[in-house]
């Protein structure tokens, strides 16, 4: 794919809490190329959203961010002033949030909010900003775009608001869009529309897209690469084909076992589930995070940090002590490979 848009190495997010330090994100590394879709999947509370907020530098005030590398189109974003960071936000890097119902300011019109996004970063007239807003509203499939500009958020449905959010994020033509569960709050019928729209726009404008979701069905359809997160770590990373067809980490296998796949899952066979809960990440934690819930756990699993290691092919990697061949056999036995 070529040009590297975002490079993140060893990203950590720590949050001081009553009983000590919550290590919410623990040394995450990933990258996004131009025109590429990276899906970050994982269950609630695994640190997906914090990861995206950390990249945008929009973390809650008390959260502490650390990284060995955090660069956007070659520019190091670590230690940038708030002023310089705000020049980047909404300009070369945009974000779409989970809650379209509350993510737009109720006091201003759609047009006002879209125009200000462009005017903040470019020297344009109101008319030019307006034209761009109308163009983008039409792009995201909103009819009668010109009259929508004068409407207030409460006059639009959730699906429409999320379309507006997407259009607003595109105002400055960003290189990277981070979409944090953009469809979770929407009706099922709208969800697919919005995701396909995102994928379409991403192809057309050749942006990098980070899609954060826990919907594996979505991931399978639009992801180029997938990073599976569990309890603050990436436990498996690879192309969509690698992760879906040859899942290696026991957690990924368990996750895939939980969803029915037409043609693959036998009718009448109970769906899988992963017993147990996510471990607490407060305080030091040097062991496999998944060991407690893993059917293949061995004594060595809890004796120290587990590193990422290459799987059978390409850039596919995972975080487990079991060798790739054994994992592959386990996957086949489970029927998820």
């Amino acid at each position: 794919m070529g040009e590297r848009i975002l490079e993140v190495e060893n990203l950590t997010v720590d949050i001081p809490v009553g009983g000590g330090m919550l290590h919410a994100v623990q040394g995450i590394s990933f990258h996004v190329d131009k025109g590429e879709t990276l899906c970050i999947v994982g269950e609630s509370g695994c640190g997906k959203s914090l990861t995206s907020l950390a990249v945008m530098d929009l973390l809650p005030k008390k959260a502490i961010r650390g990284a060995d590398k955090l660069s956007l189109s070659g520019e190091d974003m670590r230690g940038l002033s708030e002023r310089r960071m705000s020049d980047i936000r909404g300009n070369t890097m945009g974000m779409i949030f989970q809650e379209p119902m509350t993510s737009l300011n109720p006091a201003y019109t759609i047009g006002n909010q879209m125009e200000e996004a462009l005017k903040r970063h470019r020297k344009v007239s109101t008319q030019e900003a307006r034209d761009r807003a109308i163009y983008l509203l039409e792009k995201v499939g909103i009819t009668a775009a010109a009259s929508r500009l004068n409407q207030y958020p409460h006059q639009l449905s959730g699906g429409l608001r999320q379309r507006v959010m997407i259009a607003m994020t595109l105002m400055c033509g960003p290189n990277l869009i981070i979409a944090d569960e953009p469809t979770t709050a929407l009706d099922v019928t709208i969800q697919a529309q919005i995701l396909l729209l995102l994928a379409e726009l991403q192809r057309e404008f050749e942006m990098g897209l980070i899609l954060i979701t826990h919907d594996l069905g979505v991931v399978a359809r639009i992801a180029d690469r997938v990073a599976v997160m569990y309890a603050g770590q990436i436990v498996e990373q690879g192309t969509a084909d690698e992760v879906f067809n040859r899942p290696t980490h026991p957690y990924t296998q368990g996750l895939l076992d939980c969803i029915p796949i037409p043609g693959k899952t036998d009718r009448g066979k109970p769906l899988g589930s992963i017993p147990g809960i996510v471990p607490s990440l407060v305080g030091p934690f040097h062991a496999c995070h998944f060991a407690e819930r893993c059917t293949y756990a061995m004594p060595d699993c809890t004796k120290g940090d587990i590193d990422m290691r290459p799987a059978l092919e390409g850039g596919h990697e995972y975080r487990c002590l079991l060798d790739p061949e054994t994992c592959q056999k386990n996957a086949e036995r489970k029927g998820v490979a």
């Binding site: 705000s86 980047i88 945009g94 949030f97 737009l104 903040r120 970063h121």
Partner: peptide, 9 residues
């Protein structure tokens, strides 16, 4: 948060 994500002053 949206306003800040747009880079507004």
């Amino acid at each position: 948060r949206t306003a800040r994500a747009k880079g507004l002053r």
